[in-house]
């Protein structure tokens, strides 16, 4: 991790002091994957078996949930040398096996599932803004729709979603061609961790 940070800082050093603002390739669309979904932090459908309370023994419990990584579709518009705006759509889901004590057997009685869709506009601040390399931080805030399925019933909850991007980096390898790759560290409602992706700037 330290080597990565040092490398990014060295790369960014080439970009500081540039006189001209980037006018080309300032709009982009990208796809991303990665990070631990924020659903993990909410503790939905956990193993709540406890031998010292009746509810802990006889109420339903869940096995270790399975999480999909977070998939993202982003649009970015770099407005100036230092600042840009973005709009991000992301999807993640989690599924856990529901179990209940029936007689002297613990049976699987179904599956519980949570799906999360977030739409968040955001702002990016660019520490380095060159055609081939960009280094930035950002903040997103918007809305999430969470669909919970349990016992055959589905409920939809709306709420707020937010993320902080402490550091992100974008690399474009070919002049006059918009394909790039990027990686971002992210902390927030949607993702905790690092996401990776590729995009096309125009």
């Amino acid at each position: 991790m330290k080597k990565l940070v040092v490398s990014l800082i060295l790369l960014a050093g080439f970009a500081f002091g540039a006189a001209a603002q980037e006018n080309a390739f300032n709009k982009s669309v990208s796809l991303s994957i990665g990070g631990v979904t924020g659903l993990d932090a909410d503790g939905l459908f956990i193993n709540n078996y406890d031998p010292y309370s009746l509810a802990g023994i006889y109420e339903p419990t869940w096995s270790e949930p399975i999480y999909l990584p977070v998939f993202g579709l982003d649009g970015d518009w770099i407005l100036g040398r230092w600042i840009g705006v973005s709009l991000s759509l992301s999807y993640s889901s989690m599924k856990a096996e529901k179990q209940q004590l029936e007689g002297d057997v613990r049976n699987t009685v179904g599956y519980s599932k949570v799906q999360q869709l977030c739409l968040v506009p955001g702002v990016k601040v660019f520490w380095a803004n060159r055609e081939r390399f960009k280094l930035y931080s950002g903040f997103d805030a918007g809305a999430e729709a969470r669909c919970v399925t349990d016992d055959g019933k589905t409920s939809l909850n709306l709420g707020a979603a937010w993320d902080v991007v402490p550091l992100g980096a974008r690399f474009k390898f070919i002049d006059n061609f918009g394909l790039y790759v990027f990686m971002e560290s992210m902390v927030g409602r949607r993702i905790i961790g690092t996401r990776f992706g590729f995009g096309f700037a125009f």
Partner: peptide, 11 residues
């Protein structure tokens, strides 16, 4: 052995 058989024993 199935741990579900012992549910309630500790209680």
């Amino acid at each position: 052995y199935d741990y579900a058989e012992m549910a309630g024993c500790d209680y």
